[in-house]
Design a binder for these strands. Structure first.
Length: 423
RNA sequence: GGAGAGAUGGCCGAGUGGUCGAAGGCGGUUGAUUCGAAAUCAACUGUGCCCUUGUGGCACCGGGGGUUCGAAUCCCUCUCUCUCCGCCA
């Protein structure tokens, strides 16, 4: 959410943001509704002022004068009730439109219409050459008996999977390694609710745009989270923090649930795009200062790079173009890890900067040194998401016989296991 | 699932129809006192919105609706929290 005063003063900036993000949004429509809303509000408030004034005078009146005043106020009350009715309707329209206003992208966000327009910022690691025919992670998973997709599909439909045997240990190891890394860096670990109310989804801007991506439990009006970003960012909603508490660094772990609506036929093979996965996520709340928040953005990207480097997985960092930015983001870096079976880098991490867009929706504020209330800035990035990360992990560490070497840093989390071999 | 209790400012907590944006306390800020601190004393201390920006107006006591000239206060409804019982990881 943006400050409506900012929108009124800079409508062209907001319209330009919608253009750059290739979102369909009409600022003029919002401004018209806003104008109507304010007009009605002024009239309603005038009548209320009159009512309040008379209410104070009536107790002092007596006899006929009193009866007269009460009769007049009865009329005023009826009139103001009708006006309030119209105001309510306009307010509802206004709120709905406000939830669709896009955040303003940074000037250095590249123009573009697809991920082909993302700009590579840096690349790390050599793409290894293999002198034997490679198996992809699905073949390896089957051969090693660590991934079972057909049986999952039998009971749960497409985009589901079982992990099995060392596959389970490997996933838990990579998650634990990532979590420990972040805790060592001073991040506060959280295990979060996987089911949240609409307010948390709206507050983090996953609703109303994107609602079709979430699984919903209608009986309880709860939603399955698509990322622990939602409960972590909403953790301090409606609170007033002290400036000296900031920045707050959180690392959460959760399963993530995504309907993947509208992706039929896309990435259908293997563990790339699935309905449920596990993710360690980092979230930062910092002061309302674009420079600080830009610094934190680089910080959380570096944190994720450290993980990939420790796992010795080649990757590149890309600056995401306008059309690939969502409604709420100011700027986003994706980290893409090399996946031999795709013969391409595949997205494994996504680092977003929001300024106060989420904080406004969540009423997540702090009192600054001068005593004023300000909205925090929020940021988040993946630390590691599994099983997607198992794709490069398995494919890049395979040997001609189909066995897979386990990266050194993960071995302590797997009881010292050094390789996964076919049964 | 059954029964009951409750929801008031940053926090605790009073308030059962008009003088209540709301007592009191805690916390916070400033000042006095002190070598300094503690303690004590004094003053100040909510948020959001609107406009013709003024010693202006409106709203907010969980959400919504109603009664009334007037509602934190009365009525209806929803949500949430807590306690007990049942079931259960």
């Amino acid at each position: 959410m943006l400050d409506v005063r900012f929108i009124r003063e800079h409508p062209e900036v907001v319209q330009e943001a919608a253009r750059k993000k290739h979102l369909d949004f009409d600022v003029q429509q919002l401004l018209e509704v806003d104008a109507r809303r304010r007009q009605l509000l002024a009239r309603v408030e005038q009548l209320k002022a009159l009512r309040n004034k008379m209410s104070k005078e009536i107790p002092a009146l007596q006899g006929e004068a009193r009866e007269e005043a009460i009769a007049r106020m009865r009329q005023v009350a009826a009139e103001s009730k009708a006006l309030e009715e119209s105001l309510r309707e306009v307010e509802a329209q206004f709120t709905e439109l406000m939830l669709h206003v896009p955040n303003i992208p940074d000037p250095d966000v590249p123009e573009g219409t697809s991920d082909a327009d993302n700009v590579v910022v840096r690349t790390w690691g050599e793409i290894p050459q293999f002198d034997f025919p490679l198996r992809d992670h699905v073949e390896l998973g089957e051969l090693l008996d660590i991934i079972d997709i057909p049986r999952a599909v039998k009971m749960a439909g497409s985009r589901t999977y079982f992990l099995k045997n060392a596959g389970v240990l490997l996933e838990l190891a990579v998650l634990q390694f990532a979590l420990h890394h972040m805790v060592r860096k001073g991040f506060t670990p959280l295990i979060v609710p996987h089911l949240v109310r609409d307010e948390a989804m709206i507050g983090t801007a996953y609703f109303p745009v994107g609602k079709e991506q979430a699984y919903r439990i209608p009986e309880d009006k709860l939603n399955l989270i698509g990322t622990s970003e939602v409960p972590i960012t909403a953790y301090h909603a409606d609170e007033i923090l002290r400036e000296d508490e900031l920045p707050k660094y959180y690392v959460g772990i959760s399963s993530c649930y995504r309907r993947e609506a509208g992706t039929y036929g896309k990435d259908t093979r293997g563990l790339f795009r699935i309905h449920q996965f596990q993710k360690v996520e980092q979230v930062v709340l910092c002061v309302n200062d674009p420079e600080v928040s830009a610094r934190e953005h680089e910080h959380i990207v570096r944190n994720a790079e450290e993980i990939l480097q420790a796992l010795r997985l080649p990757y590149r960092v890309v600056l995401v173009c306008g059309a690939e930015l969502g409604l709420p983001q100011v700027k986003k870096y994706d980290i893409e890890t090399w996946m031999p079976s795709r013969q391409a880098y595949g997205e494994t991490h996504s680092a977003s900067k929001f300024h106060d867009f989420q904080a406004r929706r969540l009423k997540l504020r702090y009192r600054d040194k001068s005593g004023a209330l300000r909205f925090v800035h929020t940021l988040n990035n993946t630390v590691i998401a599994s099983p997607r990360i198992l794709i490069p992990l398995l494919e890049l560490n395979q040997r001609p016989d189909g066995s897979v070497a386990i990266p050194e840093v993960l071995q302590p989390y797997m009881g010292g296991m050094q390789e996964i071999v076919p049964p």
